[in-house]
Each structure stands twice: as structure tokens, then as C-alpha cells.
Design a protein around this nucleic acid. Structure first.
Length: 599
DNA sequence: GCCGTTTTCGGCCCGACTGTTTTCAGTCG
């Protein structure tokens, strides 16, 4: 096995002479340019092109520098001559002269101000030029001094809304975990569907697409008494303030700061409206373009040929009318789904297709339920196995298991497994990946587990090269069955450690290691954006709840949502396989590991 | 800025609601 130092040298050698371009950083330059150009009042289509470039770069699979060198980058839609010149400038100088000039022209605080709901580029520019306000703090102060009233186009109401908006930005960063938004949405749906005026109701927006975080909750109802439904909605007990209240559209903010939007349409308009408000914006743009190409027009009220409605009973029919097969809501991101939908899409993984779970903790380490309780909870869900995985010995903070406690737990598992004919507990461990990339027990102990999840829990501050090498070393360990939460990110609170994910995925495929889709709503790690291409290359994924309680087992629904975004079908998800196949695979994996270790 | 059986210019998706207006710009999705 190679040492980490050697590997780092090899990788550096392989990178050739060109400066490494970090696509996220490059994308950020284009995204910021777009905002600054908006402040400048540039041509909106030029701005859109910058936004599009940022988006394309973020979604890019390969290395930007490489693609630039080979000319492959020109194949990416929306990237033309001008963008290529800019990318070359960044490769050469590390930045863009135009970007630096824009940053000189507009203080960084203006970009913060743009995050305030209701403040767009025009208003921010007016505040800056007329009142010399250039930060959130200054803006808040100016509102409290009533100074905005002097500006044309600003009034008392605007000033109040800006103050509320600043509070919102400061308190919530403007985004919420999918789990928080789901709970809210399901309660509203239940109540809406109970109203006599409501014929149909559904969640739309990024929540229906199962994005990992959302800005708001979008709801769509079919009704012929929209006004009554809207009045009910804005009067709901959870509503803290009403942002908008019209006959077809209302927006409210709840006590926890989450905004909920409700749109009402007729029964006939419902499929079109549901599709329109599910989005994404990028997906809709392509759909409307397809409609236009075919001499039609698509909006939330219908698909029209001239004045005449092209009747569609459901969303599937709208796709068919535009020569596509139905695209599941989760995949509507304009991230390659249109290319796939020229033929019928395979049925995606569902909550119901899971037959068991891996990665759950018990009171033995830092869980809140005992082993037997966790197992019974899984049985009650109709699952046929539970892969238990408490923390390993180095995880002192989580009461990790010493060798003696591991052996004792194995006895307990074996005793419990006598109880059931329809269910089995698989012996596992969530082994820390130590700083040098090794696992947390000796070979003899590791060999006793049915499976081993290897995860990083400490020493986050490493260089990208060192962290990548550390994790690859763990993947190469013969005892490793799965890689746990690959980036360590905590959504809305902690960035993942730096990592070259493509290399990690390549190593996992090469060594037959499963990568976990950690379904904890704070993690959703591996990121769904990697899944489609990785699984097409042979990566196997497992949707793991990382449950620390019985309720935590239900977190699998969030993992399923993310896996569906990545377009995963059941065969690509390990824990949808029949138990016998899972066990056979694990045994074969261990045999191979023993062979590798002996060799 | 990008793109083209529409090809070197002209178009680029579309509609609701708010606030400050008195006919509409700005913002949002």
C-alpha cells in the first residue's frame, strides 16, 4: 500500500503544468460578476449568460483546466468564445480584470443587500448612489432613521419590508433544511385537502424536487373558490405575517421564518400549474422553449396552440405533447434529464423499495434506543435486516466501542438473531478513518464484522490532496465495505472538508466499495449531483439513515429524495436488494478482502 | 453573451403582486 506522501507527489505530477482551476471558485467568479453586472444595469441577456456559465461550471464533471486545454469546454452549451477567453484569463492570472473592476465599482456589502427579499438590483443601486448605503448594517440604520422615504419609488411599506427582510437574512440565512420544510408542507397539505373548496392540492417548488435545502414552501391547489381558500390560508394559525394576498397567489411567513406560497388555479389548469411551479426555473425555460419550437406556448395556465388549449390530463401528458417521456419532479433541474427523457425513464428508487438499512447507532455508543428496540423498529417497518454500526474506539466524544464492547455486542446480536426467522441484525461498525487513513481496529477485530462503514470524524483541516489521499487509503483497506458521509458537510452550518470527489468515486468503483447516501437531513452526503454519472460508471450506493434514534430511521425518506434527484434506480441502491443477495455480496466481499490481505 | 434547416443579426419565457404610482416599474418565481 502506498504512503500518503507518495500518492500526493504522484497526483501533483499528473496535474501537468496548467494551473489547477477549481470549478466552484471559477463558477463563483461568474456568479458574482452576474450580480455586479446587474447592479451596473447591464444587458439582461448578457447577465443571464454569466449566470448560465456559473451553473454549467458547477455541474461540470471533468476538470475545467483540462477541458479548456483540450478545447472540450466549447462543447458545453452556453459556453462560447467570450467565456472561453475569460476562462483562459482566469487560468493564467487567477482572476478576471473585468471582475476586479466591477468589485472596485461596487462594495461587497451590496451583494449582501441583494439577499434581502424585495430588494433587487435597481433598488440596491438607488440606495447606494442616492444615500451612499453599502452594507446591511447601514441599510438597517437608515431604515430606522426613516431615510428611505426621501427616495423616489420607496415608501413606508417598502422600508418596513426591508427591515423585516434584513431580520430574515440575519436569522435564517434565507434557507431551510428539507426536513423542516416537509413537516410544514405536509401539515398544510392535509388541511388544504380537507377544505370542501379544494379539489386537489400538492407541494410544488424545490421541495417537490427534494432539494437538500429550500428557500420556501410552494403549494398549488385546484379550486373554483380561490378567494375563500386564500382567505383561509392567510388566516392560518401558523402565519406570523402576510407578505402577499391576492386572488390567485398569496405568501405568508411562519413563526420560524419559513415563507409559504400558495397558488390557486382551476381544475383544468392544475396540471400545467403544478408543472410550472415545480420548476426548476431552468427546467421550465427548456420546456417553454420546446413548446415554442413546436408552435405552442406553455405557461401556468396551459399549453396553447394559438388561442386553443392543448388538453393534458396530467403532467405526463404535457411532456408527451412536447415529445418527451415524463420526467419525475426530483430530476427537473436541467441537469441532463432532457437527454434521458427521449425514451421512457426507468422507475426510480422509492421509500418502499428499501428492504433494510445500514448505519444505525444504539445506546452502546451515542444512540438513544437499545439494539433490540432499533431492530424491532426496523421489523415493524417491514424491513428484513438492520446493519448496526455504532462508533469505533477512537470516537471518544460518541462513546465509541472498545474491543471488549464490540465482542459483547456481537454476542448480543447473535442472541437476538435467534429470535426471528424473518429478520436479521448484521454486525457492523462505523469505523473512524484515522488521520493517516487507517481504520480504527486491528485486522482480527475488523474481520469479525459483516460490514464496515469507514467515516471521517476528526482532523477536518487538511489540504484537498491530503484528505483525498487519506480517504482513498481507507477505501483501499480490504475490510472497508462502505464509505460514510464522504464530505462531512453539515447543511446550512458547516462546509465539507476539501475533497476531489471524482477521485474518491473512482477509487470506490475500483475497489468495490459502496458509497453511502447519508440520509440525515443535515448531511445528504454524497451530494446527489455526483450520482447519475458515478452510478452509470458502476458505483453502488446505499441509502443509510445514520439513525441515532427510532425516529431517525425515517430519515431514509430524505436520502431517497436525493437519490431520486440523482436518477438512481433500485438496482443501483444496495439496500433495495433482497436480503439473501445483500448477505451473499457481503460474504463475497469479505472473502475477497481476506484474499487481498493474504496476498 | 450565446446561438443559428432562423447562420453573422436579432431574438433570447412568462405572468402575479406590491407599492407607489395615476399607468407602471420592480421584484419574484
Amino acid at each position: 500500500m502506498k504512503e500518503i506522501g507518495e500518492r500526493v507527489k504522484e497526483q501533483k505530477g499528473a496535474k501537468r503544468v496548467r494551473r489547477k482551476l477549481d470549478k466552484q471558485q471559477v463558477a463563483e467568479i461568474f456568479a458574482e460578476c452576474a450580480m455586479l453586472l446587474e447592479l451596473k444595469g447591464e444587458n439582461p441577456f448578457r447577465i443571464r449568460s454569466f449566470v448560465n456559465t456559473a451553473r454549467q461550471l458547477r455541474a461540470l464533471e471533468g476538470d475545467v483546466g483540462e477541458m479548456l486545454a483540450t478545447g472540450e469546454i466549447a462543447q458545453v452549451s452556453g459556453i462560447g468564445k467570450g467565456t472561453i477567453e475569460r476562462l483562459e484569463e482566469i487560468a493564467k492570472t487567477g482572476t478576471l480584470a473585468e471582475y476586479e473592476a466591477l468589485k472596485q465599482a461596487f462594495p461587497a456589502g451590496l451583494l449582501e443587500m441583494l439577499k434581502v427579499p424585495g430588494l433587487g438590483s435597481k433598488k440596491v443601486r438607488a440606495l447606494y448612489e442616492r444615500l451612499q448605503i453599502s452594507s446591511l448594517g447601514e441599510l438597517e440604520y437608515a431604515c430606522r432613521e426613516n431615510r428611505l422615504l426621501a427616495l423616489e419609488g420607496f415608501g413606508v411599506k417598502t422600508q418596513e419590508n426591508i427591515l423585516k427582510g434584513i431580520d430574515h437574512v440575519k436569522r435564517f440565512q434565507g434557507r431551510f433544511l428539507v426536513s423542516v420544510a416537509r413537516r410544514v408542507a405536509e401539515r398544510f397539505l392535509l388541511e388544504l385537502r380537507g377544505l370542501v373548496e379544494v379539489e386537489r392540492a400538492e407541494v410544488a417548488g424545490s421541495l417537490r424536487r427534494w432539494k437538500e435545502t429550500v428557500k420556501d414552501v410552494d403549494l398549488v391547489v385546484a379550486t373554483c373558490e380561490a378567494t375563500k381558500v386564500m382567505d383561509w390560508f392567510v388566516g392560518h394559525e401558523w402565519v406570523a405575517s402576510v407578505v402577499g394576498h391576492g386572488p390567485t397567489k398569496s405568501s405568508v411567513v411562519l413563526g420560524n421564518g419559513l415563507q409559504v406560497d400558495l397558488r390557486a388555479v382551476s381544475r383544468e389548469q392544475y396540471p400545467y400549474a403544478l408543472m410550472h411551479f415545480t420548476g426548476s426555473k431552468e427546467h421550465n425555460t427548456v420546456m417553454r422553449g420546446r413548446a415554442k419550437d413546436r408552435g405552442m406556448k406553455l405557461n401556468e395556465y396551459g399549453l396553447f396552440r394559438g388561442e386553443e388549449l392543448v388538453r393534458c390530463e396530467d403532467e405526463a401528458a404535457i411532456y408527451r405533447a412536447l415529445d418527451l417521456y415524463e420526467i419525475p419532479p426530483e430530476m427537473r433541474e436541467d441537469q441532463g434529464e432532457f437527454e434521458r427523457a427521449v425514451e421512457p425513464l426507468a422507475t426510480l428508487v422509492t421509500r418502499e423499495s428499501l428492504r433494510g438499512v445500514f448505519h444505525a447507532h444504539t445506546t452502546e455508543s451515542d444512540g438513544s434506543a437499545r439494539l433490540e428496540e432499533m431492530a424491532e423498529a426496523c421489523r415493524a417497518r417491514g424491513w428484513s435486516y438492520l446493519g448496526i454500526s455504532d462508533h469505533s474506539q477512537s470516537a471518544h466524544y460518541a462513546n465509541g466501542l472498545t474491543v471488549e464492547r464490540v465482542l459483547r455486542q456481537h454476542e448480543e446480536v447473535e442472541a437476538l438473531n435467534q429470535k426471528w426467522s424473518d429478520f436479521v441484525i448484521l454486525k457492523g461498525i462505523e469505523s473512524d478513518i484515522l488521520v493517516d487513513g487507517s481504520l480504527d481496529y486491528g485486522e482480527d477485530i475488523l474481520a469479525r464484522f459483516d460490514f464496515v462503514i469507514a467515516s471521517v470524524h476528526s482532523h477536518f483541516k487538511m489540504t484537498e490532496e491530503a484528505m483525498t489521499a487519506r480517504i482513498i487509503k481507507a477505501i483501499e483497506h480490504p475490510a472497508t465495505t462502505m464509505l460514510g458521509h464522504p464530505t462531512g458537510r453539515l447543511l446550512l452550518s458547516r462546509e465539507g472538508y476539501p475533497l476531489e470527489m471524482t477521485q474518491i468515486i473512482d477509487a470506490a468503483i475500483a475497489h468495490g466499495v459502496i458509497i453511502e447516501m447519508n440520509a440525515n437531513p443535515y448531511r445528504l452526503d454524497i451530494d446527489w449531483r455526483f450520482l447519475a454519472k458515478a452510478c452509470a460508471r458502476g458505483l453502488l450506493v446505499s441509502i443509510n439513515p445514520d439513525a441515532h434514534s427510532i425516529e431517525g430511521l425515517e430519515d431514509v425518506v430524505f436520502g431517497v429524495g436525493s437519490a431520486r434527484k440523482g436518477g438512481l434506480v433500485p438496482a443501483q441502491v444496495f439496500n433495495t436488494w433482497p436480503r439473501e443477495e445483500v448477505q451473499r455480496w457481503l460474504v463475497a466481499r469479505k472473502r475477497r478482502a481476506i484474499g487481498e490481505a493474504d496476498a
